[in-house]
Amino acid sequence: MTRAVAVNVGANTNQPGIRAPVYADGTFDFLPIPETEPTREPVPTYGDLASDLRMTIPDEIRDMSVHLDPEFAGYPECDHHTYGDPHGVKARPLSDLAAGDWALFYATLDTASDTADDRPDWHPSSWGAYLVGGLRLARDPVTDWETIPESERAVFANNAHVKRAEMDAAVLLAGDEASGLFDRAVPLSAPSGGVDANALVTELSADSGKGPWWRRPLRYDADATDRLLSVIDSREFAPWL
């Protein structure tokens, strides 16, 4: 009985002051937030990611270190599929998952197309929240780092929280081969605007879609997870908008 929890990740208008774009064909750039804590070793900068992105990285943040979490194998500077979080509001629901469940990630993205003629009818005109990737858990969540044998720590070695001077994640997740960034974004916002949740939120998740839902963890039970994964695979968004 597979379950899922979706959490907000990625660059936003607070950190580092910009959102990544979503394009008319549904492809998107993923941009992490800045690293705000001391690290044991050098970590990538926004400039290090620039050549693999379609968007232009502003000069003022190119030298800023990034908090590269979630980590998706195949994304620049990443080795495995991992995620860590120190905050109880996210860590608690993620800790309740088990091997085989999904940790899904959504980001707020700017609509790249300036006119309605240039974008699909499921894109909000300005910005929206979109599912951008996920981890199918290869193991149960790690909630006590000190109890993990050294032989099992290697998969997490490149995770941004493990690279911090003091490892601060309350939960660490490792994904299997089904994990990764999606090739197309999956809308959680309605076409009417980024703040308006569509039915993937209001009907499938346990969230009401009221208030700042795009900042909250979204919980999906087994039946809802099956339906959500089907939408992600089929890209049949219309019934949910």
Results as ranks from 00 to 15, higher is better:
15 Q>P: 04
186 V>R: 00
181 L>V: 06
222 A>R: 08
79 D>S: 15
174 A>G: 12
109 L>Y: 06
83 Y>P: 00
19 R>D: 04
197 A>M: 09
88 G>L: 13
189 S>C: 10
69 D>W: 00
42 P>M: 01
138 A>V: 01
35 E>C: 13
34 P>E: 13
63 D>K: 12
3 R>Y: 01
188 L>F: 13
72 F>A: 02
45 T>H: 12
146 E>W: 03
216 R>V: 02
233 D>Y: 05
172 L>K: 02
1 M>E: 11
50 A>Q: 15
212 P>C: 01
34 P>L: 04
194 G>H: 06
37 E>P: 00
136 R>A: 05
35 E>R: 05
213 W>K: 02
39 T>Q: 04
120 P>K: 03
160 A>R: 01
20 A>W: 04
126 S>A: 12
214 W>V: 00
171 V>Y: 10
14 N>C: 09
134 G>H: 05
102 W>D: 01
39 T>G: 03
59 D>F: 03
221 D>I: 05
3 R>S: 13
215 R>M: 09
241 L>E: 14
67 H>W: 11
141 P>F: 11
71 E>G: 08
235 R>N: 07
168 D>P: 04
48 D>V: 04
94 L>H: 11
84 G>M: 04
205 S>H: 03
185 A>S: 12
214 W>I: 00
174 A>I: 06
157 A>T: 08
46 Y>E: 08
108 T>V: 14
169 A>V: 07
22 V>Q: 05
82 T>P: 03
64 M>C: 10
30 F>R: 01
125 S>E: 15
199 A>E: 15
221 D>Y: 05
158 N>R: 15
125 S>C: 05
53 L>F: 14
1 M>K: 11
158 N>P: 04
99 A>V: 08
192 S>D: 14
235 R>E: 15
146 E>R: 13
162 V>W: 01
68 L>Y: 06
5 V>M: 11
50 A>H: 12
81 H>L: 06
152 E>S: 12
106 Y>I: 03
178 A>H: 15
41 E>M: 09
191 P>T: 09
181 L>T: 02
53 L>S: 12
90 K>A: 12
